[in-house]
Nucleic acid binder design. Structure first.
Lengths: 145, 145
DNA sequence: CTACATGCAAACCGTTTGCACCCTA
DNA sequence: TAGGGTGCAAACGGTTTGCATGTAG
């Protein structure tokens, strides 16, 4: 409950109307421990008997990304876009190339590197994305069989 | 000349036939100092009076990616796929959010981090992607005006 | 009551595919 | 000359958009 009102505050602060759809979509993002697709949001809401049109989901996500409440990711080179609620601050991702599982990693090894690069290139740095790829223990085991 | 025959060797080694199209596409990738799209390859070849069907370009790029001769990138969250010839080994990218210019960065600050993460997560790491975003000097100046 | 949100269906557009023909090895 | 490579046109699929209707503030 507290959580919800917190998201409502975020919406208000951003000048967005608080609607049933938006709350449901944000809830879904918050509940998920890893980035998800627009379609996953659509399907899971549908399972919970909440039917929101896919285009509404895309539009909502777009607005939330604009307002910096949500981050948009293209982790796998091909795949569809993933979305994640921005409640954890800066983070990185570890992706299993076998089962496609995505693990969120807190902590950043790049702060000083970014600064040194800033000096070196005269860029005004505004951020970075780091994706690490590998095979999780389960998939390593499967590969032996 | 030497360069070309070198790429021909790479093709042969990978068990691929050496065709006019493939040579032209690889040439275009090699000449470019930064990752480019399939369409850019198509258009630039066309300017040089070499017309190769777009689907051939996509198919060629796909094969080259399979053979690890080319890397496929999704740097901007939305944008189309970029391709780059793998003649420089491991590298990272610095992207200007203003003019979309992409600068390739040699050297990697993440080798030891990757190893420590490997121990910590029991993942068998196979690589990573690092994209840094910011504004280049030119774009910073433009923003003042 | 008004401006923003939503549903629906159609468009969009980068990429992929099926098939007939071509050309390298 | 066989099997991979290419051109062409059509399909695909994730995402966006136009428009009429609904609803939060």
């Amino acid at each position: 409950m507290n959580d919800k009102s917190c998201y409502e505050d975020e919406l208000k602060k951003s000048g967005l109307k608080i609607t049933k759809s938006r709350k449901a979509i944000i809830d879904m993002l918050v509940q998920s421990s890893h980035p998800i697709t627009a379609e996953q949001i659509y399907l899971e809401l549908k399972e919970n008997e909440v039917e929101i049109n896919l285009s509404t989901i895309y539009r909502t996500l777009e607005v939330l990304v604009d307002k910096r409440l949500v981050t948009k990711l293209n982790i796998m080179d091909n795949d569809r876009t993933l979305f994640e609620y921005n409640n954890l601050g800066h983070r990185h991702y570890l992706v299993c190339l076998g089962c496609k599982k995505i693990i969120t990693i807190q902590g950043c090894p790049l702060e000083s590197y970014e600064k040194s690069l800033e000096k070196q290139t005269q860029f005004a740095m505004s951020g970075h994305r780091l994706y690490l790829y590998g095979y999780c223990l389960d998939c390593q085991k499967k590969m032996i069989d």
